[in-house]
C-alpha cells in the first residue's frame, strides 16, 4: 500500500482565458478509498479529472498523485492509473480483445504477457464470448465494460472514472456497479464523477459536491445527508395553482419547506407525523409521499435547482 494519501490537491486551479473551470479546490484521497466528485454539468468535474489523470496541466495550486508532480512525472503517474473517460474512446476498427492488447502495448507490455492478461480482463468484464467481435457490435453497457477492462490492463493503483454509467440502462448500470465494487474490494482506489446520486451513494465512501469550480461540501454520503438535509422528506401536491398559497399557510410544519411548481417539499425528522398535522389542519393534498432524504436533496440544496446549460 502507498503510505499516506494517493492524491493530494491543494488550492487546485485551472483557468481557460478569463474563466476559471476549477477555482481552488482542495481534497485528499486515501489508498483503497472510493472517492466521488459530484456536481452539475460545467462544475469543473471533468477538468479536475483530466488534471488528476496527469494530462491537463494545472494553472495554479498544488497536486500530487502517488507522491509525484504530474507536471514533471506524467508518464510515471499515468503508468499507475487507469482512465475511463466520459465517452468511450475504444478502437472501433479493432476487435474487442485486440483493443486490450493494443492498449497494453502503450505500457510497454509484451504480447506474451498481454495474452493471458487480456483473457482474464475479458472474463472480469463478462465479455469472453465477445472477444472476437467488432467494437461496433457491442451494446453501450458492453462498450463501457470494455473501456473499464482496458483501463485495468496495467493493474492500476488508481482508477479514474468520468461518469461511468451515464446513458446506460438500469441492468447495465447494476452490472457495472458490481464490477466496480469488486475492484474496490481488491483495494483499487476509485475516483469517479457522476451526477447520478444513487451511484454516488452506492459506490462512494466519501465525496465532494462541486459547483462552479469550488467545493460546496465534503464527507461520506450519510453524513452529508444528515448535515444538509433532514431524515425524511414529505412531498405533497395541492395542484399547480394552489401549491404556493397552501405552503404559505402551512406555517411551522417541518424543519424547512420548499415550494416547487408541482409540489411542496417538507423536510422533517418524521414525515408521517407532519402529514397527519397537515390533514388535521384541514388541508387536502391531492397526493402525498413520505420518503427518506437522499443525496439528491443535498445536491439540489447545495447547487440549486436552476438549470445550468
Amino acid at each position: 500500500m502507498f503510505p499516506g494519501p494517493v492524491i493530494v490537491a491543494s488550492d487546485l486551479r485551472k483557468t481557460y482565458g478569463d474563466s476559471a473551470a476549477v477555482d481552488g479546490i482542495s481534497f485528499e484521497v486515501a489508498p483503497g478509498e472510493a472517492f466521488g466528485l459530484l456536481g452539475p454539468n460545467g462544475a469543473g468535474k471533468s477538468t479536475t479529472m483530466r488534471m488528476l489523470g496527469a494530462v491537463s496541466q494545472r494553472t495554479g495550486g498544488d497536486l500530487r498523485i502517488l507522491g509525484l508532480d504530474p507536471d514533471r512525472s506524467g508518464p510515471e503517474i499515468r503508468a499507475q492509473l487507469g482512465v475511463v473517460p466520459q465517452s468511450d474512446n475504444l478502437d472501433r476498427e479493432l476487435k474487442v480483445r485486440d483493443n486490450l492488447i493494443v492498449y497494453g502495448r502503450y505500457f510497454g507490455m509484451s504480447r506474451k504477457e498481454l495474452g493471458p492478461r487480456a483473457d482474464a480482463l475479458l472474463e472480469f468484464a463478462q465479455l469472453t464470448d465477445r472477444a472476437k467481435a467488432r467494437v461496433d457490435q457491442l451494446s453501450g453497457g458492453m462498450k463501457r465494460r470494455l473501456t473499464i477492462a482496458r483501463a485495468l490492463i496495467n493493474d492500476p493503483r488508481i482508477l479514474l472514472l468520468d461518469e461511468p454509467t451515464t446513458g446506460l440502462d438500469p441492468q447495465a448500470r447494476h452490472v457495472l456497479w458490481d464490477r466496480l465494487f469488486r475492484l474496490k474490494e481488491q483495494g483499487t482506489t476509485l475516483v469517479l464523477t457522476t451526477h447520478h446520486m444513487d451511484e454516488a451513494e452506492q459506490l462512494c465512501d466519501r465525496l465532494v459536491v462541486v459547483d462552479k469550480g469550488v467545493i460546496m461540501a465534503e464527507g461520506p454520503p450519510a453524513e452529508l445527508i444528515s448535515r444538509y438535509s433532514s431524515r425524511e422528506v414529505l412531498e405533497v401536491r395541492f395542484g399547480s395553482d394552489n401549491n404556493a398559497a397552501v405552503a404559505a399557510r402551512l406555517g411551522s410544519i417541518g424543519e424547512r419547506s420548499e415550494v416547487l411548481p408541482d409540489r411542496v417539499l417538507i423536510y422533517t425528522a418524521n414525515g408521517e407525523r407532519e402529514l397527519a398535522a397537515i390533514l388535521a389542519a384541514g388541508f387536502a393534498p391531492i397526493t402525498s409521499l413520505v420518503r427518506r432524504s437522499s443525496l439528491e436533496d443535498v445536491f439540489l440544496r447545495l447547487t440549486g435547482r436552476s438549470l445550468v446549460e
Partner: peptide
Amino acid sequence: DQTFFAMNAAPLS
C-alpha cells in the same frame, strides 16, 4: 474515435 486521447491517458506523451 479520440484514440489519441486514450494513448495520452496511458504513459505516451
